[in-house]
Amino acid sequence: MREAAMPLDDKVRKALDTIFSGDAGLYQTRGWNQRSGFGTRPALLNIDLANAWTRPGYRFSCDDMDERIIPGVQRLLAAARAKKVPIIYTTTAFCSRFDMGAFPLKKPFEDLMLGTDATEIDDRVPLEEGVDTLIVKKRPSAFAGTHLGGILRAGGIDTLICTGVTMASCVRHTVEDALGEGFRTVIVRECVGDRVPAAIEWNLFDLDMKYCDVEPLDRVLAYLAELEPFEER
């Protein structure tokens, strides 16, 4: 059984809020921390919401999935499907020890074998066969070594709405690459997680300053509600 991560107590959270508030002012005076906003043609990208990360008992498991992240993603899925917004899932999976390269030197990647329950998408946020897209990736970023950028451009997508885990790795690297690939990116605050609570807070702040917009779930849902239903190209 994995050890539970220590939650942020009120004193720590208050201290972080104070630090981030001051640092946000520094970025603002230097021309950073600008809002990229929403575009007109979004896609929903659910990053590594597979059992190894979302269910207890795995070495990759993250906290706060049942109480916050899964319910939030369920609401996003319903809103996106209502407007026929493209929905993309990623999982990280390997077909052999050799396929993993050097990753096992630092992490228990042998837990992520292709075809096992660990790498299957959590059935509480199910993928709709024949409609949604599943990308099996080998690296933290959903763009690295995959066709994600190509299908987004082919579909005329200008905005990525991101959920998933982990903030310090796969979410972060994907969001950084998304900006480099030319996409507006929005992280849904209530729908991302990590094994270490402090990693969530720091990365949300840092990415919001430099790479994307971090927005609350209600604002993202309101944006989706105002969209005209997608028409296939």
Score class of each variant (00 low, 15 high):
residue 162 C to I: 14
residue 2 R to A: 14
residue 96 S to H: 05
residue 109 F to Q: 03
residue 207 L to V: 00
residue 34 Q to V: 11
residue 210 K to Q: 04
residue 48 D to Q: 07
residue 96 S to A: 10
residue 76 L to P: 09
residue 129 E to I: 04
residue 223 Y to C: 06
residue 75 R to H: 01
residue 115 G to N: 06
residue 141 S to D: 07
residue 75 R to C: 06
residue 83 K to E: 10
residue 159 T to I: 06
residue 87 I to P: 01
residue 185 T to I: 03
residue 175 V to N: 06
residue 233 R to T: 08
residue 213 D to F: 02
residue 138 K to S: 10
residue 24 A to P: 03
residue 202 W to Q: 10
residue 135 I to S: 02
residue 147 H to R: 11
residue 208 D to F: 00
residue 176 E to H: 06
residue 23 D to H: 10
residue 170 C to V: 07
residue 37 G to R: 11
residue 148 L to F: 01
residue 69 I to E: 01
residue 43 A to W: 00
residue 138 K to W: 05
residue 139 R to C: 03
residue 191 C to Y: 00
residue 69 I to N: 05
residue 6 M to H: 12
residue 218 D to R: 10
residue 11 K to E: 15
residue 88 I to C: 00
residue 55 R to T: 14
residue 145 G to A: 07
residue 92 T to Q: 15
residue 103 F to V: 09
residue 61 S to V: 01
residue 93 A to D: 07
residue 16 L to N: 12
residue 77 L to R: 09
residue 28 Q to N: 09
residue 148 L to G: 04
residue 214 V to L: 08
residue 49 L to R: 06
residue 14 K to A: 15
residue 215 E to W: 02
residue 40 T to Q: 13
residue 138 K to F: 01
residue 110 E to M: 08
residue 39 G to C: 09
residue 49 L to P: 02
residue 22 G to S: 05
residue 192 V to P: 02
residue 214 V to P: 02
residue 183 F to N: 12
residue 195 R to W: 06
residue 36 S to Q: 15
residue 26 L to M: 11
residue 140 P to W: 00
residue 33 N to L: 11
residue 156 G to I: 02
residue 114 L to F: 07
residue 121 I to A: 04
residue 191 C to P: 12
residue 141 S to F: 00
residue 126 P to F: 07
residue 93 A to Y: 08
residue 98 F to T: 14
residue 131 V to M: 04
residue 168 A to K: 11
residue 99 D to M: 04
residue 192 V to Q: 08
residue 198 A to M: 12
residue 50 A to F: 01
residue 188 V to F: 03
residue 109 F to Y: 15
residue 95 C to Q: 14
residue 16 L to F: 14
residue 52 A to I: 06
residue 211 Y to D: 07
residue 85 V to K: 05
residue 163 T to G: 01
residue 7 P to N: 14
residue 139 R to K: 09
residue 66 D to S: 11
residue 180 G to C: 12
residue 47 I to D: 01
residue 129 E to D: 06
residue 109 F to A: 07
residue 210 K to C: 03
residue 190 E to A: 11
residue 190 E to L: 12
residue 144 A to V: 01
residue 24 A to N: 08
residue 67 E to S: 15
residue 189 R to G: 00
residue 189 R to E: 15
residue 65 M to T: 06
residue 107 K to P: 02
